[in-house]
Amino acid sequence: MLINGIAVGCIYGMIALGFVLIYKATEAVNFAQGDIMMLGAFAAFSIIALLGFNYWVGLFGAILIMAVFGYALEALLLRPVIGQPQFAIVMLTIGLGFIFRTVAGAIWGHDPSAFYTPFTGKVSSFGPVVIAQENLAIIIGTALLCLVLYLFFTRTRLGVAMQASSQNQLAAYYMGIPVKRVFSLIWAISAGVAAVAGVLLSPLTLIDPGTMGFFGIKAFAAAVLGGFGSIPGALVGGILIGLVEQFAGRYLPAGFQETSAYLVLLLVLVLKPSGLFGQMAQKKV
């Protein structure tokens, strides 16, 4: 159960990572992240189950498709809204989320679907501990993803440029960083991360347009718990939320499992609004 909680938590963490990346760089919050994850899962579903390719082709194909999708989304729809009041972006992404859900329902149907993964139904045992390989895949996948992202942001020119434009947009612009393209790329990465989350999650909860959107909302709890804008915070927050949810389902009365993530979210806002790893600072004029 612990492992299960951690695995689900990793998914929350990955979605939260998507929020945080976008928030850090463009100061926008993407309320459609859960729906982008769902689209990623469906993209993998199409490649694996409908076109008959192998799991790994599906995984990387989905990442690629979603990255292009995220890039196009930013370039076409979100750029006109940059600099407008914050609620414009909030509402825009909410609207997009609803569109994605309807479109996905129209294309792939509203029945939950699944595809074959090499991990389904297998277990690995480490001494006395027996772990389902689906969970193991999620945990290892998250760890690998974090490593890749960490190396990308610290070791590559593009990654450093992204950090720069997230810290000070104007200064980055003066330094010759193409800020607009960087923003689009951030959205691409975020959508790619969401695709990974979607593909890894699909063996646990079947792919279906209704439920996956809720993962997006719960991931907010993870992001807030970790302190909005902190990348390690998002992952730690996600894992904590996953664990809380598992244990609430076990020890508390019915109804608490679904709401525990939101209760944690509200509690964090009351007690420690900056989150565990937050760096909130007052804006200076």
Binding site: V81, G95, F98, P209
Partner: peptide, 19 residues
Amino acid sequence: QIPGLEPGLFGVILVLFII
């Protein structure tokens, strides 16, 4: 005949108006 057409339409209208 798409089920759940309404929320999608809400989304489309919202996006079009905001942009």
